[in-house]
Amino acid sequence: MAEPSTQKHTTAAVNNPTVNVEVDTSYENDSSYGDELSAYSASLTSSVLEYRHENGRRYHGYRDGSYLLPNDEQENDRLDLLHELCLQVLHRKLYLAPIKNPQRVIDLATGTGIWAIDFADQHPQAEVIGCDLSPTQPTLVPPNVKFLVDDIESEWAYERQPFDFIHARYLLCSIKDFGRLIKQCYRSVKPGGWVEFQDWDGYPYSEDGSYDGTGLQMYYDKVYGAFEEAGYEVRPGPKLEGWFKDAGFVNIQVKKIPVPYGIWPKDPHLKKVGAWVQVGAETGFEAGALAALTRYKEWSKEEVIALASQARADGRRRDVHPIVDFYVVYGQRPEN
């Protein structure tokens, strides 16, 4: 009887190496430990809510500085608007992956949580998790939704209870290592499960050259240049397929959708989509540029406002016809 027990102990020692964590002996036999724990938990909570206020905007407190866009009400309204834009682009579909009866789902960098909430309404049998650096999601949500404060570029613990479906959307200018993130998704999705990323090639272009030399082009060149110098990826869309392949996914599907900026297209659907793009961009010009240019390029707030104003003006010209490419890429982890 002793031999199996010894073997089991040896295996456990190999898989779980000893970690020497020093004990704080001041807590031993201390009846106030419960009060101390409450105080420590409150301190952790307050650190999440200690937002940075800068240039008239509010930014996340947890992992301060790792995300360069605001998290205030003005920005949250814009994120909800961008949710509607994506629905317009995808003809009211939340996702394109061929998932069936998902039981456990996560939405990475969920923002206001609107995608997670809509998905939970459509799939009441699924447990849906939304994670983000900021706890700015609503409290009145479907019972099968919960939100977590987490940094998706840090190490995950999700592999212990893997997901049927992992979704991420609009992460350009937010992530520094997409390849690593997508490999974490691979490890955290069940065999046979699906991962879907929806994102942009951030730099607009025009087919007739009308975009070249405009204030709109100057805006994106300056702002995206600052993000790139800070280490962020601003053109994830066309690279997603390669990252999915490198991670080990199979049955990868890529959908590239050219999306107009503005109401210049003749096609009614494209005109409507272009209007959503323009509104989303105009309401976000200053938000997208302030932190990147003032923190990394030593611009003043007034200079950023002037740049945004010029971009806004040229974006409204009927003789300027910008296009930006939207990508939907999904893949499956092999069954075996």
Rank of each mutant, 00 (worst) to 15 (best):
W264M: 08
K271M: 13
A226V: 05
L240H: 01
G248T: 01
K222V: 15
P260L: 09
R160H: 11
Y186V: 06
V234P: 03
Y170Q: 04
E159K: 07
Y203T: 09
G288S: 11
L270H: 12
I166Y: 02
A230N: 07
Q161Y: 07
A289F: 01
L172C: 11
K256V: 06
G242W: 02
F227Y: 15
S210F: 00
R295D: 09
L181Q: 02
I263N: 13
H167I: 03
A168T: 02
E159V: 01
Y220W: 15
K183C: 09
Y220G: 00
G209V: 02
C185A: 15
V277C: 12
D212K: 11
L270Y: 11
D212A: 08
W276D: 03
V259A: 10
V223T: 12
G225R: 02
E286L: 13
K297S: 08
V277Q: 14
D246H: 03
D246E: 14
E153K: 02
E153T: 07
Y261Q: 11
E282K: 11
G231C: 07
T283V: 13
W194L: 04
I152A: 04
W264N: 04
Y205Q: 07
G262T: 03
K190H: 02
Y203Q: 10
K272Y: 13
W156N: 03
G213H: 00
I257Q: 14
A157I: 13
P191T: 04
D221N: 12
F197N: 02
F197P: 05
Q278H: 15
D212V: 05
P236T: 11
V279L: 14
E155H: 08
A247D: 08
E207Y: 11
L172H: 12
V273F: 12
K239W: 01
M218C: 12
L216P: 09
L240S: 06
P265Q: 06
L171H: 03
Y203S: 09
V259G: 06
K222P: 03
P265K: 01
Y224C: 12
E233T: 14
W156Q: 02
V259W: 11
F165L: 00
A289Y: 03
F227M: 12
L181K: 08
V234K: 00
V195H: 08
S210V: 03
Q184G: 07
E228N: 13
K255V: 14
C185F: 06
I252Q: 05
A292L: 04
W200S: 08
K297V: 00
L171F: 03
V259E: 05
G248D: 01
G288C: 12
R169C: 05
D221S: 10
A157K: 14
G192M: 03
D164I: 09
P260R: 11
L293T: 04
P236C: 11
G209C: 02
Y170S: 10
Y296L: 04
L293F: 00
V277W: 11
L181G: 04
R295C: 10
E229S: 12
K256H: 09
A168P: 01
K272C: 13
G280H: 01
T283F: 07
E233K: 12
G179E: 10
P236W: 05
W194Y: 15
S154T: 13
Y296N: 15
D267K: 12
F249I: 08
